[in-house]
């Protein structure tokens, strides 16, 4: 199980960074540029690991990125990669969807803890925006998850995944899917819901004070965490995957939609995004819940 979990983390790390490289590349093409090489994000993270650290705000500051990393890895380990396979399952037989939803909140909380102790105003603004937005993001996602749990009489992600052999949940429960998908776009942190690190407003946002190795940890965890979120969406709504190739194909499609939406839409303000998330996707998911 140990090797299995390690393989899961390594795969998420590699795919997370490759997808991030793709994101930069696709955005560059949308702008009419060539963009960096696919592996650019790897280079960045390795270079950051090789930099020295010269700021000190006490141990709470350093604990922040580590808690974020732990949040990302534990979330990942409770989501099985493949449908009906014995490999790449991690700890998923010991946990369920409720636990995963709970662990997903650990990342912003760890972030808030690290930033609270450095006192940088841009960081504090960023994380306040992030936590406010989180309220809007969680509502539709939780409602969709509750709908799926009722429909499948189970909170086990593996069961929800295997029950989709006749048709994907995305088609049998379309309203739940739309609600969860809009919230997923927000979870990915791209436009129009990118109030947290909006460069023109709060500079680097929460990451402003992070430097060197701790910034590298924060970047790696966000790569792993975004792959975990893609994985969760594929498992819950797109029937999981039988093989790694299928998994890559499905996560890639989801990712591509998120990137393209992000490139087309302008940014909401914090109040707008919460209002939008509470009204539209939550409303859609609630109507979907009635049909379950």
């Amino acid at each position: 199980m140990f090797l299995d979990s390690l393989a899961m983390i390594a795969l998420a790390y590699i795919f997370g960074f490759l997808y991030y490289g793709l994101y930069r590349n696709i955005s560059a093409r949308v702008h009419g540029r060539f963009g960096p090489s696919l592996a650019q994000s790897f280079f960045d993270s390795i270079k950051l690991f090789l930099k020295e650290n010269s700021t000190n705000f006490g141990w709470m500051f350093y604990a922040g990125p580590i808690i974020m990393m732990i949040g990302a890895i534990t979330t990942l380990l409770f989501i099985p990669y493949l449908n009906g396979s014995e490999h790449l399952v991690g700890l998923s037989q010991y946990g369920n969807l409720i636990l995963v939803l709970y662990l997903m909140v650990l990342e912003p909380l760890g972030n808030a803890m690290g930033i609270g102790s450095n006192g940088n105003p841009f960081g504090v603004m960023g994380i306040t925006r992030g936590l406010t937005r989180l309220i809007g993001l969680e509502l539709p996602f939780y409602i969709a998850a509750i709908g799926l749990m009722i429909a499948n009489h189970s909170a086990d992600i593996g069961v929800i995944m295997t029950n989709q052999s006749e048709g994907y949940n995305a088609f049998t429960h379309p309203l739940l899917f739309i609600g969860a998908f809009i919230s997923f776009l927000g979870f990915m942190g791209k436009s129009p819901f990118d109030v947290v690190g909006a460069p023109q407003e709060v500079y680097s946002g929460p990451a402003t004070e992070f430097s060197g190795k701790f910034f590298a940890i924060a970047l790696s965890q966000s790569a792993i965490f975004s792959f975990a979120k893609l994985l969760l969406m594929v498992n819950l709504f797109l029937g999981g995957a039988q093989s790694l190739v299928e998994l890559v194909a499905k996560t890639f499609v989801l990712f591509l939609v998120a990137v393209l939406v992000g490139n087309v839409y302008a940014r909401f303000t914090t109040a707008q995004s919460v209002e939008f998330l509470v009204r539209v996707p939550t409303g859609i998911a609630l109507v979907g819940l009635l049909f379950v």
Binding site: R24, A28, H31, G32, R33, F34, G35, P36, S37, Q40, F43, D44, K47, L48, K51, T55, P199, Y203, S204, A207, T208, E209, F210, S211, F215
Partner: peptide, 22 residues
């Protein structure tokens, strides 16, 4: 940084804080 010169090809990106800059 614009599409005409596109320095991101070389791995150069702008950051907003000296903490992360090289």
């Amino acid at each position: 940084f614009t599409s005409r010169y596109d320095i991101e090809r070389l791995g150069v990106v702008g950051v907003a804080t000296p903490r992360q800059a090289d």
